[in-house]
Amino acid sequence: MNERRKSLAGRGSDRSGPAGCGDAVELRRKAEREILCRRREGFCRFARAFAALSLRPFFDLEVEGTHHVPGEGPFLLLAKHQRWEDIPLLGLSTPKALYYVAKVELFSHPVGSWVLRSLGGVPLNRQRPLESRRYLKRLVGFLQSGEGVVVFPEGTYYPQCMGPGLSGMVRLVLGRLEVPIVPAGFEYTPTGRRTRVAVRFGPPLQPPFPAIDSLMQEIMHRIALLSGLDAPPAPHP
């Protein structure tokens, strides 16, 4: 009995860092332990209609190049990340529902987690990517079944400028399954009380791909051009 009490005490004290940090870590781990389910199509349709109604007073949406988004078969969609509205506006712009890779912290609250997962959100722990292995496995499973997956390669918001292209998720996916990569850009232009936003999709890059560094340089170059931003130097052929 004493040994059991010691064991239980040891489990309860297995936290590092100041008070509060252990709780945050545990919330992230709990989110990662939850079952990764397919999105709920009925809820996606409701969310799409709600987003269109909610965003209409603030944005004039223009969509270009939707024919570059595959209607069938798997693909990665790598998009510019200007602001939080990118996600619902992207959902309104694509002809089919997609899955989205998002930071695991967004899944910590039970209600928020249910909403994100129902909309196709896939959690990723950027600080500890190896802890997201089983989510990556399911993500590859979605691709193998013909789904499209959105990745924001900058990892966070970079308004009106280009951030660095983070290759981690792309590298992990392409190491298991080579699929077309569709670049996408957002260009926001204030026009009085409303904002014109152009969502542009470029021609997909097709496998076989070059080395990951050259591939990411080319992708970020295309995303910048689609976003109306100064593009980094194009890679040498």
Rank of each mutant, 00 (worst) to 15 (best):
N2A: 15
N2R: 15
E3V: 12
R4H: 12
K6Q: 15
K6E: 14
G10S: 13
R11G: 07
G12K: 10
S13L: 08
P18Y: 06
G20K: 04
G20P: 05
C21Q: 13
G22T: 11
G22I: 01
D23V: 14
R28I: 15
K30A: 15
K30G: 15
A31R: 07
A31Q: 08
A31K: 11
E34A: 11
R40F: 06
R40Q: 10
E41N: 14
R45I: 03
F46S: 10
A47C: 15
R48S: 11
A49I: 08
A51W: 14
L53S: 14
S54N: 06
L55Y: 10
L55K: 01
P57K: 04
P57W: 13
F58P: 09
L61Y: 11
E64M: 13
G65W: 07
G65T: 13
H67L: 10
P70D: 03
G71C: 07
G73A: 04
P74I: 05
P74N: 04
L77H: 09
Q82G: 04
R83P: 00
D86R: 11
D86K: 01
I87Q: 12
L89W: 10
L89Y: 06
L90R: 08
S93P: 11
T94K: 07
P95H: 14
K96E: 06
V101A: 00
V104G: 02
E105P: 05
L106C: 05
F107L: 11
S108M: 08
S108H: 12
H109Y: 09
V111Q: 07
W114M: 06
W114G: 01
L116T: 11
R117Q: 12
L119T: 00
V122M: 09
L124K: 13
R126G: 00
R126I: 12
E131I: 05
R133T: 10
R133W: 06
R134D: 14
Y135A: 14
L136G: 13
L139E: 09
L143D: 07
S145N: 14
V151F: 11
T156E: 04
Y157N: 02
Y157G: 02
Y158V: 00
P159G: 04
P159D: 01
P159T: 04
R171D: 06
R171M: 12
V173D: 01
V173C: 05
V173E: 00
R176K: 13
L177Q: 08
L177E: 00
E178D: 07
E178N: 02
I181N: 02
V182E: 01
P183C: 01
P183T: 09
F186W: 03
F186I: 05
Y188C: 03
T189Y: 02
T189I: 10
P190F: 04
R194F: 04
R194N: 10
R194I: 03
R196L: 06
A198I: 08
P203M: 03
P207M: 08
F209L: 06
F209I: 01
F209M: 02
P210K: 05
P210V: 03
A211S: 13
I212M: 15
I212V: 11
D213T: 11
S214C: 09
L215V: 01
M216S: 07
E218G: 08
M220V: 04
H221W: 12
A224F: 01
A224S: 14
L225S: 09
L225W: 09
S227T: 06
D230C: 08
A231V: 06
P232I: 09
H236G: 14
